[in-house]
């Protein structure tokens, strides 16, 4: 008898939380050419992961590098949301010259983005000057209160 009193509300709570959890999940299906024509200039990268939760939400798949017509370094980062729900994050590019000095530019700002569940997103940035040789990208979870 006692077991029934606790069992029913507990079961209902589990079911309701399950519905709430799975109803918020919206994932992205994708389709693309089986053998891509374009060849990516994938570059080796060094990662410093301090927030493993964010790393699951915004997982870096690869870095692609190129040069624009004007001789500017162009970087594309492919990120994947390994979670099944929409995630907020911000990123910021920092650019460095030949001597490893940070190039201060108005384009170096934290950019907020949203990524759907299991979605792959490409982030593109162009170096602010022709003398820029290196870059660093920072990712952070949304710290603003909604």
């Amino acid at each position: 008898m006692m077991r029934n009193i606790f069992y029913k509300p507990l079961l209902s709570a589990y079911i309701l939380s399950g519905i709430a959890l799975f109803s918020s999940c919206t994932t992205v299906n994708t389709v693309e050419r089986e053998t891509p024509v374009g060849t990516k200039q994938i570059i080796a990268d060094k990662r410093v992961i301090t927030d493993s939760t964010l790393n699951k939400k915004v997982s870096i798949v690869g870095l692609n590098e190129g040069v624009t017509n004007g001789g500017f370094l162009q970087v594309q980062i492919e990120v994947l949301n390994r979670k099944n729900s929409l995630q907020d994050f911000s990123y910021r590019f920092e650019w460095f010259d030949m001597n490893g000095m940070l190039v201060d530019t108005p384009t170096s700002v934290w950019i907020p983005r949203q990524i759907e569940g299991q979605e792959t997103m490409t982030i593109t940035a162009v170096a602010p000057a022709a003398g820029v040789k290196d870059f660093r990208v920072k990712f952070i979870e949304n710290v603003r209160k909604n």
Binding site: Q74, T107, T124
Partner: peptide, 27 residues
């Protein structure tokens, strides 16, 4: 990332727009 977000055009919105425009223009 800690600036205030309102429905008005905030200071960071100009930064986002400018960043994208400059990237596009230089590319």
């Amino acid at each position: 990332p800690r600036t205030i977000v309102t429905t008005d055009i905030n200071i960071q919105d100009f930064s986002y727009a400018a960043e994208e425009m400059i990237n596009s223009l230089l590319a």
